[in-house]
């Protein structure tokens, strides 16, 4: 316990200072949320590269939580769905149902090139389409995988902070 304490003191704050919010990037539909966005992440068929980046976006260095975003366990608690990967046929219905399970107002973020336009998986036999073919998308994060900075910036666009 003492060693842990010492380590804490030595490490101090890991989080990088918050960059200036990018102007004009806010999502109007998110205004009602008032600076608090709970996120349910859905892997609709990703290669898991995006997941690694999400984990680091919520990790100590980028600390997306400081802007009012938080990952939750149930879509009932969520305000936004964070969808990664192309929508595979197996996940299409599940994705729709998850969206249906989120109470209004609800947002959808398509994260990564796959989610935006099927990326490297475009045209594959198991792919039903991009996220926007299945659900109305409110925000997109390009990149394969997107950088944590980009993810954080998109989230800040929703929380407005």
């Amino acid at each position: 316990m003492i060693s842990l304490l010492r380590k804490m003191r030595k490490t101090g704050r890991v989080a990088e200072p918050a960059p200036e919010p990018a102007a004009g990037d806010t999502v109007p539909a998110a205004a009602e949320l008032g600076g608090s966005v709970q996120i349910r992440h859905i892997d609709a068929g990703s290669c898991n590269g995006c997941e690694v980046e999400i984990a680091s976006a919520f990790g100590p260095v980028y600390d997306a939580e400081r802007y009012g975003a938080r990952l939750v366990a149930s879509p009932r608690h969520a305000d936004a769905l964070l969808v990664t990967g192309p929508v595979t046929r197996n996940m299409e219905v599940a994705l729709r149902r998850t969206h249906e399970a989120v109470p209004e107002p609800r947002l959808v973020i398509a994260l990564g090139d796959c989610a935006r336009d099927c990326g490297v998986f475009a045209g594959a036999y198991g792919v039903a389409g991009a996220v926007k073919d299945v659900l109305p998308v409110d925000a997109e994060v390009p990149g394969c995988p997107p950088k944590p900075e980009a993810i954080v910036e998109a989230l800040r666009g929703l929380t407005g902070r």
């Binding site: 989080a15 608090s36 600390d63």
Partner: peptide, 26 residues
Amino acid sequence: ARLEGRVGAGVLQTWRDLRKLCRKEA
């Protein structure tokens, strides 16, 4: 959050969460 080296969402965040939840549908 501070002890884990993060910044954290601020003391008021829980109130923001509650305000938002009240605006959502049950």
